[in-house]
């Protein structure tokens, strides 16, 4: 934020004074102090954070697409308004997150380019199609629930600008979650057709949901250093457990079932859920752009960006001249 004289110097292993700076940096984090834009930070910390926030921002803007496509079909006026507001929030979250990443020295333009060229990743769940209205309800309830587990944790992380953005995001996600839950309650308790629609959606979405928090701790490469630097405070498996503990009982309560092949079993002693391990090779393939909707998502994002180019250019040019005031008084 504000003007940051990025201290991008001697921030790599082997640079003069790196060890001392790193020790001071890690001591500050251990003490619970936040890192701010403009602070000295290890290059690896900066790069990991840019990567994480960039993926998060991409996920918000790509996440606007599957649900955004259903805005014209929302079945009553309240749902229509709520869905527009929800998708708008996601665009807003992307805006806040790209800004947080920008404080680390990467421009939004560059991040957007990397997204539409397929170089940068976004969350696995948005590589799938939202096939029916019940998918919208399922995404809004359970994907947002999963996101809240992740974002509440990340909001306490060590990088100040990211944490501040996430606090506001979590506040808005609470509306998304309730709105999604409300839709699911209606469908689950509605006609047989509605209930079946919801069960079908849940069956389709359960795999991406199980994969949502990322590869198992046994497989994840990034966890250890991210946890040491308090970028992440909980492992992927811990987050997945937290999600299952909170939401599986609520899913059952609505009279819904989870596909048998997942062998979901509660360990009464520990409170943990046991499940069939997702296929992490498939997960990696999906986030690399081989999911059912991956090509469509990128095409849509690219189209919006390219078709908007003349508008961005025109306003850049117009900003150089004096304008008629917009105020209406």
């Amino acid at each position: 934020m504000i003007r940051c004289n990025h201290v991008v110097q001697n921030d790599k292993l082997g640079d003069p004074g790196y060890e001392e700076s790193l020790a001071a940096f890690e001591a500050r984090i251990a003490h619970g102090d936040k890192v701010e834009a403009g602070d000295w930070m290890p290059d690896a910390y900066r790069r990991q954070l840019i990567r994480l926030i960039h993926v998060h921002a991409n996920s918000e803007i790509c996440g606007a697409l599957p649900e955004g496509g259903w805005i014209p079909h929302a079945p009553n006026l309240k749902r229509k308004l709520a869905l527009i507001a929800k998708v708008q929030d996601e665009v807003g979250h992307a805006q806040l997150l790209y800004r947080a990443a920008e404080t680390l020295g990467k421009s939004r333009e560059e991040m957007v380019e990397e997204l539409i060229s397929g170089k940068a990743k976004y969350s696995n769940v948005f590589h799938y199609h939202a096939e029916t209205w019940a998918d919208v309800a399922t995404i809004s309830w359970l994907i947002d629930a999963g996101a809240i587990v992740n974002q509440r944790m990340m909001a306490e992380g060590s990088y100040g600008p990211y944490g501040r953005a996430l606090k506001r995001i979590c506040y808005e996600e609470a509306f998304h979650l309730t709105h999604g839950y409300d839709m699911c309650i209606t469908l689950a308790g509605g006609t047989k057709k509605q209930h079946d629609m919801l069960q079908d959606a849940l069956n389709r979405w359960w795999k991406p949901i199980m994969m949502f928090h990322g590869p198992s701790d046994k497989e994840s490469r990034h966890n250890e250093i991210l946890m040491k630097w308090q970028v992440k405070l909980k492992s992927n498996d811990e987050q997945r457990q937290e999600f299952l503990r909170q939401y599986v009982p609520k899913i059952y309560e609505l009279g819904l079932t989870i596909p048998e092949e997942w062998n979901l079993r509660l360990d009464e002693d520990t409170g943990d859920w046991h499940y069939t391990e997702p296929d992490w090779a498939e997960f990696l393939s999906v986030v690399r752009g081989n999911g059912p909707a991956s090509a469509l998502r990128l095409r849509t994002r690219k189209m919006a960006h390219v078709e908007g180019a003349w508008v961005r250019e025109a306003l850049e040019v117009a900003a150089r001249d004096e304008r008629m005031p917009v105020s209406v008084n």
Binding site: A64, P72, V87, Q88, A94, V311
Partner: peptide, 29 residues
């Protein structure tokens, strides 16, 4: 207007246009 949500030329413009759509539908209600 609501169809622009998520597809406008830049994020800031997207958010504003979406609010217009919400205000209009809200007034219709």
């Amino acid at each position: 207007n609501s169809v622009w949500t998520g597809l406008a030329p830049i994020l800031e413009a997207d958010i504003a246009m979406s609010s217009l759509a919400q205000d209009e539908i809200g007034q219709a209600v």
